[in-house]
Design a protein around this nucleic acid. Sequence first.
DNA 1: GGCTATTACGGAAATCGTAACCATG
DNA 2: CATGGTTACGATTTCCGTAATAGCC
Lengths: 298, 298
Amino acid sequence: MDPHLLRTFITVAECGSFSAAAARLGYTQSAVSQHIAALESDLGTPLLGRRPVVPTPAGERLLEHAGPLLLRLDAARADVRRTIAGPPSTLTLAASPLAAHSLARGLAEVRRSHPGTEHSLTVCGRSQVVAGVAAGTFTLGLIDGIAAPTDPLHLSDAVQLRTTPVAHDELVVALPADHPLANRRDLTLADLVDARWIDAPDLAAPLAALRTAAGSNALHPAFTYHGTDLRTLLTLIQAGHGLAALPRPAVTPSSAAVQGLAAVPLTRPRLVHRTELLHGHLSGPAAEALAGVLSDLE
Amino acid sequence: MDPHLLRTFITVAECGSFSAAAARLGYTQSAVSQHIAALESDLGTPLLGRRPVVPTPAGERLLEHAGPLLLRLDAARADVRRTIAGPPSTLTLAASPLAAHSLARGLAEVRRSHPGTEHSLTVCGRSQVVAGVAAGTFTLGLIDGIAAPTDPLHLSDAVQLRTTPVAHDELVVALPADHPLANRRDLTLADLVDARWIDAPDLAAPLAALRTAAGSNALHPAFTYHGTDLRTLLTLIQAGHGLAALPRPAVTPSSAAVQGLAAVPLTRPRLVHRTELLHGHLSGPAAEALAGVLSDLE
DNA sequence: GGCTATTACGGAAATCGTAACCATG
DNA sequence: CATGGTTACGATTTCCGTAATAGCC
């Protein structure tokens, strides 16, 4: 189970095609075919059905492991490199969309405290932030999510990263102002199991996360929004396509898009929207250089 | 970072010698030397000092990652194999020493419910139980440890295993009957920070675990017992070499070794001794075959 | 018949062992 | 000088690309 083989396997499964995967990886179709054949021979079982190329049950299991495995491998390499490198000369920040709001608040402070260094900010999905910080692509990451009030965010257990809580926000349900529930003082998830939900996994808390947090598995999305634009989501809600759980500040900024929206606190189960700072293990001068950033953001 | 190279690296670090590692792995000294050289060239930094052979700081970091990484790799392989294999014809059980007590209670039930299959039981350290179950060496594992009353046991996050709580026992401090604290109704960790502790990491809760659970880092062992025999540990305590935190049932069985020992509940921080059943993801007939075992033990 | 995976084969590269070499205690 | 890590070198294997083959829409 060479990591290269696993990487090819993941790519083929993603692409649904040997040749597309080969193109993406810079191999020939032949090489990809040999990689998969080697894996299948090693594990003694077919991993992919051909034509169409879809994972077998065994392949599904392997897929669940392969990604985290490669991530951990990158994390290990990045961790070693950090110990031999001095303090980073460029601060590369990453944040999930809703966490970027918190970051924007503190960014001025960060730049002032590190006038000499270059800065960059990337806004992308939660898992990409985690993966990037683990692999050393980003110096710092900021992610958001929902959790019980005392619990930390439960991020991919593939990697071991330091986390620092940055902000807790009240979790509210955003719904059209003329929605029957819009005038309620508060809401429980029980009130909402039959509601029309918009799942916006790249932006708001994924419905799956809400489901596990609530222990219920009755929440089903009526609509899925793949995107990271908050205003688009709010407009969708306003137009009655469904409702979503968001941090209070996201629904009540001084923004024109918010007119016609109600934000009702979600009080049961007790959940909060949490923002956390992620960073790899930093030692020596690097740690000192970043201590300022952390304290600025907290 | 080929897994083979990582494996050699771990072995060399453990052995403190290239040649010893070569013997253990079935390589020549030369091959081991080349492996380490390849790793160091890949990562661009020395990982081991020679003569004596000790990890550099960078090597230490890599060591922290390498073990879990290889474990996860084995876990992936085992997981795939489980999906293609039918129900296991032999039930291989593993348990940490104190968990084995709980297992012995239920073992008769297990054997009765699976009269056709072979059974075996291995008692070994917690991490070996976890690793063995992850790698598929054991069908089921039973581990014990301490945790906050509502929390699950925090086992190595390298692997993803199902856990089922089996037993909660009160955590008591075992001390000689003539110890000044022996007559207390209960104890807090604050009472015991200056006490003489026996650390028995293979048997009782490791002091390090107590420390992190307590948030304090003032607990230092006066004596370390490497072994898995409960009666030996109890005798050590009785003889005044120190005290230890144990589950209530371990200190008050109908056993002769217990005379002269006191068991005082540890009430603060709120901790319990917990026993959990571990198993890999089982699908189809295998899951059904083992469902009985799980329910028997619960 | 076109698209795509597989197989055959050859050259390049990597792997490991033997053996000579060298460094440290 | 002896133990033990390194380097040199060669046989074997592995890996990947080219090209021919085979299988499914």
